[in-house]
Amino acid sequence: MTLFYSIKEAISGFSKARLSTFITIFTIFFLLFILAVFAILSSNVYRIVNVLNANYDMQVYLSNTLTDAEIESLNREFRQMPGVKEVRFISKEAAASEFKQVFGEDIFDALEENPLPASLVILMNEDTKVKLNLEKIAKDLQKRPEIDEVVLHQDAFNALVKFSRISRIVLYTIFVIVLAGSLFMISNTIRLIILARRPIIDTMQLVGATDAFIRRPFIIEGVLQGFLGGGAAAFLVYLLMQLVALQWPGLILLPNYFYAMLLLAGVLFGLVGSLFAVKRFL
């Protein structure tokens, strides 16, 4: 009855400001989606680093002249370095078979001798990785004669660490923009609908409608816009997560309430935005 009437009026209100309604829903959707992506990236940054960079942190290619004993002593030395979690030896043969796996052809087909160097792969502890200056360690190692080359597998990692530092700031900034943008869009749309319905509102007041009754359709409109925007954002994030999970299973862990929170955020924006407009323009 009364609520049913309000909802009916709310939906008919949309048709009075169709474009504005659409733009508002889209804006809320878009802003919440960006916010969600940033939130996901920044809360999963270490997991992302681990998965994308799981195999090694530093690969030390050894000179061809080293004996097994010399390799063993290097291995032991690396193990005792601070922050090292694990050291793995990749022999020349293992390197060759890995080559075959990756490139699909036998390296001995073209060459008589195995040209691939043996290497030691050094995995660092996750928590110390950030603090240690791996670049300096790599450079020092590079100078030693028994070592051919040191390759750091941490470019992506560095970028992500940097990202995680600034992402918090960006996240807050985006949140403020989302909040202000959504509130503005919603209250502006509600304002347009109120203007379009001014004569109806005046007449309603003259025949004894309470303020609460007159306001309700507009509040419902705002909440509906927020709900649709938030829902679309939640839906797209869900799709995106499914895609990411196909490519990199376990890369991102997202609590189920994350989607509910997106939806709730949209609804809250809608509620606050329309309350503001109704207080201001009615």
Binding site: M1, Y5, S12, P199, I200, D202, L206, G208
Partner: peptide, 29 residues
């Protein structure tokens, strides 16, 4: 109140123009 300028609502039909007053006060359908 019968207003000098009627104040009928052009976005709804006669039935709903009249029903409107009762919707406002929350009567049942």
């Amino acid at each position: 109140v019968i207003f000098q300028d009627f104040k009928l609502l052009n976005d709804r039909d006669v039935f709903r123009n009249v029903a409107f007053v009762l919707e406002v006060v929350g009567r049942r359908n």
